[in-house]
């Protein structure tokens, strides 16, 4: 028994010495930055998808965190952000990205905004923006999985598979009607997930949406020179 214990101790000691052999990389010596998108949009992924159907206005401002990997510093530090044009399909007019972000002294992250813009072209295609960290005097590029963020956005609409369940409240489907529904509900702060099987909306919740939309349509028609029509020229009703 005694010999066995001695041999085991020797083996563990050898293993420990081996582990010390390659030690030499520390983030405090070699600070890096990683990008983290809004948790609601990007949790568990490196990409964010957005539809302007549910956005109020023609601009969406997306918060992105530049998080340091390493110790906080007692001085301000700058991280560089660049657009990878090879992996970006969006026209430059459709977005705005700051070239750099300053991480304040004593802080382990800074938040910057990426602006995404709506345009007619987005009704027929989805565009992509690939931003990534570029090395600066203060930071090197972070780990591969989080050294970039992909933003994809469009204004494309497809008929939901569950429309039959909504028909009682919203009538026949048309793209313009659906666009009006999503826009109106989003503007009023309602949940735009209309899928009864996942949204938890009950009959009265959807009936209330119906009334909200009827009022919004009445207001639209009263304040525009012509009543709202769908893509086929038919009057939209609720």
């Amino acid at each position: 028994m005694k010999i066995k214990n001695i041999l085991l101790l020797a083996a563990v000691s050898l293993f420990g010495l081996t582990a010390c052999e390659n030690d030499g990389f520390y983030y405090q010596d070699d600070a890096r930055v990683r990008l983290v998108g809004d948790e609601n949009w990007t949790l568990g992924t490196d990409s964010l998808e957005l539809s302007f159907l549910t956005v109020t206005g023609d601009e969406a401002k997306i918060d992105v965190d530049a998080c340091i990997m390493g110790e906080v510093s007692d001085k301000d530090r700058v991280a560089n952000i660049i657009v990878d044009n090879a992996l970006t399909t969006a026209d430059a007019s459709l977005y705005a990205v700051p070239a750099s972000v300053t991480i304040p002294a004593g802080s382990n992250k800074a938040t910057f905004q990426v602006t995404l813009r709506n345009a007619e072209v987005l009704k027929s295609k989805t565009v992509r923006l690939y931003i990534k960290v570029a090395e600066s005097a203060d930071f090197k590029v972070g780990v591969n999985e989080e050294n970039h963020l992909i933003l994809k956005w469009s204004n494309i609409l497809t008929k939901p598979l569950y429309w039959d369940e909504l028909k009682e409240f919203f009538g026949e489907y048309s793209e313009e009607k659906y666009r009006f529904i999503l826009k109106t509900l989003a503007d009023k702060g309602y949940d735009t997930n209309l899928d009864p099987s996942t949204s938890g909306l009950n009959w009265s919740d959807l009936h209330n949406y119906n009334i909200v939309l009827a009022n919004a349509l009445a207001e639209y028609n009263a304040t525009h020179s012509s009543s709202l029509v769908d893509e086929n020229g038919a009057l939209i009703t609720f």
Binding site: S204, D205, I211
Partner: peptide, 12 residues
Amino acid sequence: VANSRKFSAPIA
């Protein structure tokens, strides 16, 4: 019908 015991938006 299923409801949340809330009054709707005003009837249009």
